[in-house]
Structure formats: structure tokens, C-alpha cells
Amino acid sequence: MSEPKGAARQGVRTACGSDPHGNDGRRLVAWLHIVVPRGAVPTATSRCVCGRDRSAIGRARVLALIDDHTAHRDTCPLRNPQEGRAAA
């Protein structure tokens, strides 16, 4: 086999514009997805990159999961890293 000639050998130039959203250092850690179809049973899912993955079906359980998801913000090891002996 011979080496490619022309553009294939030289590569193709691409125009990479700047990211319109920028990188302000923020990233998604946890998210809550709630679905409430008209006339149907509501569902919700709470996920976090720490490994948390919970779901709920029904109004009362969805409301409880919303409260639990909110409380997880204070206890998540990724949002609140502990240092020193407490981490061990």
C-alpha cells in the first residue's frame, strides 16, 4: 500500500468556533426529572453522579422524592467533600 496523497495526507482543516455557552466551571451533579401527564399518574427520577438513582410513582411518593432530592444536596459527597479524618 502506498501513502495517501493530497488532502488525505495533509488532513482537513476545520473551523472550531468558540463555545457560545462558555465554560464557567459549573457542571451537572444531580438532577430531578418529574413527569406529570394530564390525567395520569406522576413519576419522578432523582439521579446524581455520586451513584444515587431513585424513582417514585404516584403523587405522594413523587412529593417525598422531591424533598429527599433537596435534602441530598446537603449530604452528597461530591457537593460537600469532607477532608481530613472525617473523610476516612
Rank of each mutant, 00 (worst) to 15 (best):
E83C: 03
L65F: 00
G51I: 03
H72D: 13
S55W: 08
Q10R: 15
A44P: 11
A7Y: 02
R27M: 03
L65K: 02
V36Q: 13
A56H: 04
R73S: 09
C16G: 07
A64S: 11
N23T: 08
D68R: 04
H33C: 11
H33V: 05
G11E: 06
L32G: 11
A71W: 01
I66R: 01
G11I: 02
V62L: 08
V49T: 12
P20H: 10
D24I: 04
A56T: 08
V29A: 03
C76S: 03
A15D: 15
P77N: 01
S46P: 04
C76I: 07
N23R: 05
V35W: 12
A71R: 14
G51C: 09
A86N: 05
R38C: 11
P77D: 00
D74L: 13
Q10W: 08
E83I: 04
H69P: 09
A7P: 01
R9M: 06
T70I: 14
N23E: 03
R85N: 10
G39I: 12
D74K: 10
R9C: 06
L65Y: 00
R38P: 14
R38Y: 15
S18I: 05
V62P: 02
D53G: 10
R54Q: 02
P81A: 12
C76P: 03
R85F: 07
C50M: 01
N23V: 07
V36R: 11
D68P: 02
D19S: 06
C76K: 00
T75M: 13
V41Q: 06
D53I: 05
K5R: 10
L32M: 14
S46E: 01
C76Y: 02
V62A: 02
R59Q: 13
G51A: 02
S18A: 08
G17N: 06
E83W: 08
H33Q: 05
D19I: 03
A7E: 06
N80G: 04
V36S: 09
I57S: 05
T45G: 12
K5P: 04
S46Q: 08
A44W: 09
R79D: 12
P20V: 10
R27D: 02
T70W: 09
T70G: 10
P77H: 01
L63S: 15
P81T: 14
T70N: 12
A60D: 12
G25L: 01
R59M: 07
C76N: 01
A15L: 10
T75I: 13
A60T: 14
T43Y: 02
I57Y: 01
R79A: 09
H69F: 13
S46F: 10
D74M: 12
T14E: 15
V62D: 03
R85D: 07
A40W: 06
P77F: 04
A44F: 13
R38I: 09
D53H: 14
G17E: 14
N23M: 07
C76G: 01
T14R: 07
V29K: 00
A56G: 08
G22L: 03
V41Y: 02
I34C: 03
